[in-house]
Amino acid sequence: MPNTVLTVEDLSVTFALHDSEVHAVRDMNFTLTESEILAVVGESGSGKSQAFLSIMGLLARNGRATGKAMLGDINLVGMNKSQLDAYRGKDIAMIFQDPMTSLNPSLRVRTQLAEVLVKHRGFDKDKAIRAAIEMLERVGIPEPAKRANAFPHELSGGMRQRVMIAMALLCQPKILIADEPTTALDVTVQAQMLDLFKSLTQDFGTALVLITHDLGVVAGVADRMMVMYGGRAVEKGKVDDLFYDPRHPYTLGLLHSTPHIAHRAARLDPIQGLPPSLEHLPKGCSFNPRCAFRFERCLIERPPLTPTGEGREKACFYEGELSYEKVA
């Protein structure tokens, strides 16, 4: 049984607006084990990024997180920033969506890498730079010593994302959160990047959280997945199970709306309707206005996330068979 590295319990994130509150994430629960790759999937605004930003203490000023994110016996949620600095960058690291803007344009790559080791490992500057160059080599950057002296604008997008990966892995963290790490990259680079993620996290025993809306990415690398809708997890389970036998209509819709090269269709099949506004979630199940399988109960009561065996969970009252025909 592999070790559990992160246990998230009842994590909720709210944002205070002028005269109201928006619940971006509600009652999120999951565990991460060593070397595991968990994909968190959902449309824009489903709360998938905010949940993990809250664990990293990176919410916007008006955001507030409640619940628990246990790293060993330390709860990262609600911890003050200076205490949190002992863990973030060291035990839990994050890679962001846009490598073009996520590196500081006015600092050399080596400075941005070395400071992590100086802070968390207590290395002196020279030793930290040498270790940083080694890590750059490890993430597949040619001429790492030369690139370390470069400024970010002198590198391509793929190179910059490799630098971000190197930066996040410097301290061999227990957990790596990657928020849409391949979205801003060319398709050819995306595949390389995913391979890199997979091999490095295996080498270091790092658990990887892959936040994405790209099911192709999930299929390629993830072990388990969590589908989010309207701030809540609606289905969880092994990737293969969810892909071959989705049990939540939303998961089915997501899979169905992904184009396949084998079935060349005249038009794509998107999920009907729009993602809900978090300020005005529908009564009952949040997905009910877009669901082809809804019945009366869905309009009144919100389905809780319940285990359905084989390590799977879903939040849906519908127990019949889900068919593509009905979605389309």
């Binding site: 960058g89 962001f96 803007t101 996520s102 400071e115």
Partner: peptide, 15 residues
């Protein structure tokens, strides 16, 4: 974004 990255590294508010 790059200041958010810096914060995520845990190098402390001062740095």
């Amino acid at each position: 974004n790059y200041v958010r990255t810096a914060r995520s590294k845990g190098i402390g508010q001062r740095l």
